[in-house]
Measured scan of single mutants.
Amino acid sequence: MAAGGDHGSPDSYRSPLASRYASPEMCFVFSDRYKFRTWRQLWLWLAEAEQTLGLPITDEQIQEMKSNLENIDFKMAAEEEKRLRHDVMAHVHTFGHCCPKAAGIIHLGATSCYVGDNTDLIILRNALDLLLPKLARVISRLADFAKERASLPTLGFTHFQPAQLTTVGKRCCLWIQDLCMDLQNLKRVRDDLRFRGVKGTTGTQASFLQLFEGDDHKVEQLDKMVTEKAGFKRAFIITGQTYTRKVDIEVLSVLASLGASVHKICTDIRLLANLKEMEEPFEKQQIGSSAMPYKRNPMRSERCCSLARHLMTLVMDPLQTASVQWFERTLDDSANRRICLAEAFLTADTILNTLQNISEGLVVYPKVIERRIRQELPFMATENIIMAMVKAGGSRQDCHEKIRVLSQQAASVVKQEGGDNDLIERIQVDAYFSPIHSQLDHLLDPSSFTGRASQQVQRFLEEEVYPLLKPYESVMKVKAELCL
């Protein structure tokens, strides 16, 4: 049975990233139509530049190519590739079939990587351009969430054990800070992308030097003109047959890092959902379990974690691919890159769409948070109580021993009897502590235990987050809708 299948058929496997999760716009960027249309555009740009620099290419040939950029006979191309065992030459023939007058000058002087690699770089750039505003929107939604809850005390956790208090907004800023680093890295790697350009079979530009009869300047002009037509500021000066596969490492490393950030955020949300302090959106008709109707599973956060793990592992592909590119190139890269580049971007696209949807509907339960604080705060307040007693004339050592005994009794009630923490009640009825009984409410005010959390939130948002989001103001209103 021949390899390949009808990918629109229910009898043929289709990647869930495309069929179930990723956005239509990201799927289109990695589609065959987008790819092969870009090949034709690159052939047109090459012909236009070659004509401008004096090669015998007519206006009629150029116009014929322009008129057929979208006229792609995919069936013919597939048949040609089956016959020739070469995808680029299959599309040269297919393009030439609908451009008979231009057929002889299509791909003039070029090698397969002229269309293959340059198209990949265009796709990487455009895919990054799709991700950047999506990530900015996630940051914006979380920034709104953090600002609104900047002063809401909550129990902090280290080692997932109760620690000092923080605020809900401050905790959210930990998430935002990681995503801001990801946004900066995505922008950097996007701006650092260079075009492969017009380089020939081993990167020496020998074929173009021959076409222009040894004119170095025209060869350099050709490279520059096509690079500018493709919208790049610069091209690699040095290439082998391909652009260095280190570029793929750079791009997928940034995406993998984004995956790590999203995994951490969504894990926190899942843990908070278990504590009943916070939940992701839950639709009115949504079913959490087929057997347990009360369940409210954090399905979206779980999906993000599941896909983020996949995204983090994909960076190993370009690392290994770059390491086995012998001399000017081997074909070890080809099949692998067809999979890992598309999957990385479709996965990143999915987790950003999902995280935006989550961040637009996060639900906080202040009463649950308050109750958990009441359970733990008495123990945390013991040092403040000791200091207040010393100020009232008591002995630190005597007070410490009193607190120690009462704390152990209260802990026994919590752990052995399943009761509430009654340390404060014990202190309130103990005559030894009568000098500070009137101060206990103040000493137990949760806001006095959150330090500068709310001020940190305000400063972080104003100095770091809002300036970073400013270039994306025009796209901030787009909502994230999930079908599944």
Results as ranks from 00 to 15, higher is better:
M312N: 00
T58F: 06
E228M: 13
F433I: 06
T111S: 09
G54P: 04
R459N: 14
E213W: 08
G418P: 06
D182P: 07
N71Y: 10
Q161V: 03
L211M: 10
G4R: 13
E250R: 10
Y294M: 02
E462S: 12
I386T: 10
Y34Q: 01
W43H: 06
W326C: 02
S438D: 01
P24W: 07
C98V: 08
L165C: 04
C180N: 07
M299N: 10
E370I: 14
V219K: 04
L275P: 03
P467D: 13
K284R: 10
L252F: 11
Q241K: 02
I62E: 00
K82G: 10
D248Q: 05
L443T: 14
H93M: 07
S447C: 15
G361S: 08
A381I: 05
L128P: 00
E283W: 01
K224C: 10
S253Y: 10
A273R: 02
P10I: 14
E464I: 15
Y365C: 12
R303L: 02
H91I: 03
M278H: 00
S474F: 14
F95M: 08
A3G: 13
G4L: 13
G419I: 07
S323G: 07
E220H: 11
L46F: 15
R452N: 08
E370S: 15
A18Q: 09
F95A: 12
D332A: 01
L331A: 03
S301I: 13
Q416V: 11
G200F: 03
H437Q: 11
I72S: 05
A381C: 04
A381F: 04
F74I: 14
D215M: 10
K402A: 11
L135C: 11
Q458H: 13
L155F: 07
S31N: 15
A260I: 04
S261G: 06
V251C: 04
W45V: 06
Q285A: 09
L108Q: 04
E283G: 05
Y432P: 04
S301D: 08
V363Q: 09
N336R: 01
Q63T: 07
L258E: 03
D333L: 02
E79A: 13
C340K: 03
Q428P: 02
L484F: 14
E328S: 07
I249L: 13
Q439E: 13
E277A: 01
L179N: 05
S395V: 04
H93C: 14
D349Q: 07
E360P: 15
T244V: 07
E360K: 03
A453F: 02
V364A: 04
T201C: 15
L124K: 11
N126H: 11
F282V: 04
A480G: 12
G393W: 05
K35A: 07
L155G: 02
Q205V: 06
N71E: 05
T158K: 03
L222C: 08
V168D: 02
M76Q: 11
L444H: 14
D73M: 02
S412R: 11
A291L: 04
Q397H: 06
R309K: 09
L193G: 08
L252H: 13
S19T: 00
P298C: 10
V363S: 04
D59E: 03
R188Q: 11
Y294D: 06
D268I: 00
H263W: 10
G104D: 05
G96A: 09
C304H: 13
P318V: 13
T204A: 10
V414M: 13
E343F: 00
H217F: 15
L55Q: 08
E48M: 08
P293R: 01
Q356R: 12
L179Y: 04
R426C: 00
A392G: 15
V254H: 10
Q164S: 09
K276R: 09
D216E: 15
A453M: 01
A273E: 13
S407N: 05
Q320V: 10
A256K: 00
A150R: 07
P471H: 15
Q458Y: 15
A49I: 08
L314S: 07
L44R: 06
G104N: 12
T202D: 10
S474R: 13
E277W: 03
M299T: 08
Y432W: 07
M181C: 12
A77R: 02
H437V: 02
Y432D: 04
G231C: 07
D178C: 05
F449M: 05
L440D: 01
R83C: 09
N421S: 09
L406E: 04
D192P: 11
R270E: 00
G361T: 08
K402V: 14
D192M: 15
T201F: 01
E464W: 12
C27P: 15
M389L: 12
W175T: 05
L209C: 06
M476R: 14
P16A: 10
Q61R: 05
D192G: 14
V189M: 12
L311F: 01
G288M: 04
R404P: 06
L53K: 00
A392P: 03
H263F: 00
E70Q: 05
K75Y: 03
D349G: 07
E60Q: 05
A335T: 08
Y294W: 06
L84M: 10
T167E: 01
Q439K: 04
M380Q: 07
K199D: 04
Q456F: 06
S407H: 08
R303M: 10
C172V: 14
V219S: 05
I358W: 05
E79I: 09
Q375I: 12
L443Y: 03
S323L: 01
M380R: 02
A136R: 07
V262F: 06
M387D: 05
V414I: 11
G104R: 08
C173A: 13
F145I: 04
I62W: 04
T450C: 09
F379E: 03
Q51I: 08
A22Y: 15
L222Y: 00
M316W: 11
A291R: 02
E383P: 05
H7F: 12
K134W: 13
E64I: 05
C172F: 04
L252W: 06
D248H: 05
L132R: 13
L179K: 02
S323T: 07
E48K: 02
R404F: 10
L46V: 09
L482E: 14
V219L: 10
R149D: 05
H400L: 05
H93D: 10
L132E: 11
K134A: 08
F212K: 06
T450H: 02
F95Q: 06
F36K: 09
I72Y: 11
D32S: 12
K66T: 12
W39A: 14
F157W: 09
N357C: 05
Q61L: 03
C340F: 13
T267M: 15
P446I: 07
S434V: 10
G5F: 11
V254I: 11
K477I: 09
H107N: 02
A18V: 14
H93G: 10
E328H: 08
S395P: 05
D317G: 08
L341P: 10
L53V: 10
G96Q: 05
G451H: 00
S434G: 13
D216N: 12
I62N: 06
N126R: 05
F157E: 04
Q205Y: 01
V413K: 08
Q397E: 14
C483A: 13
K233D: 08
A206R: 01
W43D: 06
R14Q: 13
E302K: 00
P446W: 01
G419T: 11
Q285C: 11
P153I: 15
E462F: 14
V390R: 03
L311G: 02
C99L: 07
M181T: 14
P446D: 02
K367M: 04
A411R: 10
Q455P: 10
G419K: 15
R296W: 07
E25T: 15
P298Q: 07
D349Y: 06
L132W: 13
L142A: 07
A388R: 02
F28G: 02
C266E: 06
L44Y: 09
E64L: 07
V168N: 03
S323E: 04
K233I: 06
P366G: 05
S261A: 14
T52S: 09
M389E: 08
T111V: 00
D445L: 14
A146H: 07
A411C: 15
L132M: 10
L222M: 07
K229L: 06
D144C: 09
L211R: 05
R14E: 13
E328A: 05
F30P: 00
S23G: 07
F160L: 08
